[in-house]
């Protein structure tokens, strides 16, 4: 590998790591909150209702995350 491709590879890896860390944290939170909401009394298997709830909850949590992210970024850009 020449200098140029070593550099490109390092940049790629750094970006991937940031994205992975972020995704891992999000998945952990989704599981935590949605399990709490959708599976209040765990049975012998996940019912289809629980599974549907989980899917909705996941989408909803991500929407909530985006809302907070937008709010926070707007605030930072406003400068306080």
């Amino acid at each position: 590998m020449d200098s140029e491709s070593v550099k490109a590879e390092v940049i790629k890896q750094v970006r991937q790591q940031y994205a992975m860390t972020n995704a891992r944290e999000l998945i952990e939170k989704v599981n935590e909150h949605c399990f709490e909401k959708c599976v209040p009394k765990p049975g012998s298997s996940l019912s289809s209702g629980e599974q549907t709830c989980f899917t909705h909850c996941m989408e909803k949590y991500m929407a909530a995350w985006n809302q907070v992210s937008t709010t926070y970024i707007t605030r930072i850009q406003r400068g306080d």
Partner: peptide
């Protein structure tokens, strides 16, 4: 925890 208090019926907020 504060804002999504009801049961989850849809994917959107």
């Amino acid at each position: 925890k504060k804002c999504v208090t009801g049961s989850i019926k849809q994917g959107a907020m």
